[in-house]
Amino acid sequence: MDKFGFSLSRARVIDYDKNDRRIAEYIYEHEPSFRLCIECGACAATCTAGNFTEFSLREFNVLLKRGENDKVRARLKKCMFCGKCILACPRGVNTRNVIFLARQAFRIFDGNET
C-alpha cells in the first residue's frame, strides 16, 4: 500500500444479508416488546449514560436490529440499568431487558460478553 500512498476503503454500507442477526432474534424471542420500537428516541433523550457519553439507546436498538454486532458490542456496557428509558418509551418496550438480553446473547453466541 505504501507503494501508492493510498488504499482501498471498507464500504460503510450495512450489508443486511451478510450480517449475523442471531443476537436480534434472541431478543425478539425473549423480549417480544422489542419489536414495537419505532426508534422515536425518547429512551435516548432521557438516558443517564447518553448525557455524558456517546451512547444512544435508539441507535443501539437500530444497530441491533440490523445485525451490526460489532458496533452493538462496543456499546453494551454503557448502560447503567437505571431504567428511566422504560418510563419514557411510548410503545411499552422493556428497554432495560433488551440490553440485559443483548449481554446474555453475546455471552451465548460469542462465548464471552465483550
Partner: peptide
C-alpha cells in the same frame, strides 16, 4: 489529491 485516491479506488473496486 493523493491522500483521497483511496476513495476513487474503492468506488472502482465496488
Amino acid at each position: 489529491v493523493q491522500a483521497n485516491r483511496g476513495y476513487s479506488l474503492s468506488n472502482t473496486a465496488k
